[in-house]
């Protein structure tokens, strides 16, 4: 069950998507999200889908992973659908009128657009974490946020915290899995019983998990101190980030795609 969580998972590879500079990748992902929410017609959405799928194809990551990353968000999608279905009103007559429930054509169109956006959003952003190692990702973020140093924002500390947090997601998932198995072996009921029972059943899992997290934090802090870690000042990198010609070409190509997607706004009528 816990193995299904794909946040922060990284699939090493050698594709052009993997090789792209992390800074550019982050900026392009943000740009993609903006483009996605500015495409208000079906042609634009269709082109976004084509764009996402071709980048996915290029990265060599199995499409099954996509399905896996969407799965945990299905409840959220349903929630969106449910809310919008009943609360959006159009100018015309309702399609379905049950007296107290009125469903308009606009609501259904809006839902389709919204669901498409959510799905592509997940695809695009999960592609970022699938193809970028956590270290590269935080290196990229640190480099992007460097200007904030001028206003005394602790950029390096933030980046280090993010690196550590991302690094520990798989470890903690594994740990939780182990503890759950251990308590299940002692007859703990984790998947049945009333709501109150289930909350109670979490205690034997959460307490060992907290204790081991604290222990790990302490061990890591000691290990970092032993290596004379003292923060970001004067720290150099093993792998310097460098933008190559390939990076620029890929970025330009993506930008062209984005512009094409956005330009559909001018030629097609907006759906919402």
């Amino acid at each position: 069950m816990l193995k299904d969580i794909t946040i922060g998972q990284h699939f090493p590879g050698n594709s052009p998507v993997h090789k792209l500079d992390p800074r550019l990748k982050i900026v392009l992902t943000v740009a993609f999200v903006v483009v996605l929410f500015m495409s208000t017609n079906f042609v634009g959405l269709f082109l976004s889908a084509v764009f996402t799928l071709s980048v996915f194809k290029l990265s060599g990551i199995p499409l099954k992973m996509l399905q896996k990353s969407i799965k945990p968000l299905i409840p959220l999608i349903f929630f969106t659908v449910f809310l919008n279905l009943f609360f959006i009103k159009g100018p015309g007559d309702p399609l379905i009128n049950l007296g107290f429930v009125k469903i308009y054509k606009e609501a259904i169109l809006f839902i389709i657009v919204m669901v498409c956006r959510i799905i592509f959003l997940i695809c695009g952003t999960s592609l970022l974490t699938y193809t970028t190692s956590p270290i590269m990702l935080t290196d990229g973020l640190e480099s992007l946020m460097k200007p904030l140093n001028k206003i005394h924002f602790p950029v390096h500390e933030m980046a280090m915290m993010m690196t550590i947090a991302l690094r520990f997601i798989p470890t903690l998932i594994e740990e939780t899995d182990k503890i759950m198995n251990a308590q299940k072996s002692r007859g703990a009921m984790l998947d049945s019983g009333s709501f109150a029972d289930r909350i109670k059943a979490l205690v034997p899992i959460l307490i060992p998990l907290f204790i081991s997290s604290l222990r790990r934090a302490e061990e890591l802090a000691t290990a970092m101190e032993c290596r004379c870690y003292h923060g970001g000042e004067g720290r150099t990198r093993l792998k310097q980030l460098k933008i190559t010609g390939d990076d620029i070409r890929s970025a330009v190509l993506c930008c062209v795609c984005f512009v094409i997607i956005l330009s559909t706004r001018m030629f097609f009528t907006r759906v919402i």
Binding site: E175, I179, N181, A182, R186, V203, P204, I207, P208, S212
Partner: peptide, 12 residues
């Protein structure tokens, strides 16, 4: 009955 590796981490 199953005793896992490092079972001391399951105490609560």
């Amino acid at each position: 009955g199953m005793v896992f590796q490092y079972p001391e981490y399951q105490l609560f």
